[in-house]
């Protein structure tokens, strides 16, 4: 066992390894985010960041907090299951600031046709018309109240709420 007296270079080498490992640990502690591995092999804080995105569709309940009159008409009509923003578009901005953000009334000739234009690809039970033949190009709201579209179902409400005039 005369080798050990010449083993100094081995210890220096091992020391270098230990030093490199320490440097690795220090760098790792700095660059790996605190939440990495919180739930799995990913940055846990990313979940909160994605959840913090702004909402643009306010949701039906928010609309109905203020527009109770429309909600009442709608609840009795054939469109009861259709959410407000399905037709009116994303209006969280309006819900947040009703005074300065005013929604634009949708063009019924375009909007209604989107769903109700007849096509054999649509389920047969869904009410469909050929818009040109059905109304001759007149806007749908001439006869229908979009909130309660079956004619005669709520005509007083029709006249009052921007339906038939």
């Amino acid at each position: 066992m005369s080798g050990l007296k010449d083993a100094g270079h081995l210890f220096r080498f091992a020391g270098l390894f230990v030093l490199a490992f320490l440097v690795f640990l220090v760098v790792r502690a700095y660059v790996v985010p605190k939440s990495f591995g919180e739930y799995g092999h990913y940055r846990g804080a990313a979940i909160g960041e994605i959840a913090a995105h702004p909402v643009k569709f306010a949701g039906r309940q928010t609309c109905e907090t203020c527009h109770t009159d429309i909600a009442d008409i709608k609840a009795k009509g054939a469109h009861a299951h259709v959410n407000c923003e399905a037709c009116h578009g994303a209006l969280a901005a309006h819900a947040d600031d009703p005074m300065s953000v005013t929604p634009v009334k949708p063009d019924s000739a375009v909007l209604c046709a989107r769903c109700h234009t007849a096509s054999a690809a649509k389920p047969a039970s869904f009410p469909q018309v050929d818009p040109a033949e059905h109304s001759g190009g007149a806007p749908c709201v001439t006869c229908h109240n979009p909130h309660s579209p079956i004619i005669g179902s709520d005509f007083t409400a029709n006249a009052a709420k921007g339906g038939a005039k």
Partner: peptide, 15 residues
């Protein structure tokens, strides 16, 4: 995810 964690439904379901 930013909606369902607030008790709302997704935008596609809403629309």
């Amino acid at each position: 995810y930013h909606r369902i964690t607030k008790g709302l439904t997704t935008a596609c379901c809403e629309a």
